[in-house]
Design a protein around this nucleic acid. Structure first.
Lengths: 129, 129
DNA sequence: CTATCTGTTATATATTAAGTATAACAATAA
DNA sequence: TTATTGTTATACTTAATATATAACAGATAG
């Protein structure tokens, strides 16, 4: 299954869809040009209204992850390398700072964070489903 | 100023208060046993209702960052080391995974993340205000 | 040409989260 | 005694989230 939704989560459904697709791109399950299910199809698959899926798609498009072609479909978009990096660096600061503050407060060594990140990179770049 | 609130942020006010205090502990501005302002005082300082501050305090207490003593006040709490680490590892997984997925999708090398984290650690442990 | 499918727009509604406002309680501390 | 503390209760407003239903209009496949 490409997407699994936790309806009891504190995280909004449209955000779970968004994160799931970003994760799909990162893991190599979704590649440049790949079509995404229509808002109706994906909504039916995961038991969610089409507007909720549409909200996730609009967000993903605004972030440059996908391209919505009206009346044709929605597709994964690779995007420009430099612009991608800039996009990431702009938005990762706050959540990362919060995370590091928590780690320092909990007396967790920076090496532990490095190790976790390396492990996640390896999992994603290994490209196993 | 210990706390600065952005009323236009998408992040809830009580969460900004929570993060600000966690950051205060991480930076060494707040230490074990230090008293926090009363819910009314802090609310008045930052222009927010006392219930909003109380919500942040309750959250911080549930996470083990502070100790609320009824009718006496609220104080920073160091907590147990092992329990602290466990608490962090339980809760950091999801947001970190999302962050790393975005980084991989944006073709940002893991070394960049390592560097950012080291920089944040240095800033916090340097203990300059 | 005819259906079907596409994202899109519009309207309406329900639920929950977030935040404020005001008042009162009861023990602590000055 | 008096002010301060966290707490509880009630009421209210606003915004975010999610669903439901319908229609639009071009693209696409039969």
């Amino acid at each position: 299954m490409l997407l699994s939704i936790d309806f009891g989560s504190d995280q909004p459904i449209y955000m779970q869809i968004r994160n799931g697709i970003v994760n799909g791109i990162a893991s190599g399950n979704l590649n440049d040009g790949d079509p995404l299910p229509s808002v109706r199809t994906l909504g039916a698959e995961i038991g969610v209204n089409l507007h909720t899926v549409n909200k996730a798609y609009q967000l993903l498009q605004s972030e440059g992850f996908i391209e919505i072609q009206r009346r044709r479909g929605t597709f994964i978009k690779a995007g420009d390398a430099a612009q991608n990096a800039a996009e990431f660096l702009e938005n990762c600061g706050d959540p990362l700072k919060t995370l590091v503050s928590e780690a320092v407060t909990r007396r967790v060594d920076r090496a532990v964070l490095h190790q976790m990140i390396d492990h996640m990179y390896d999992e994603l770049e290994g490209n196993e489903s």
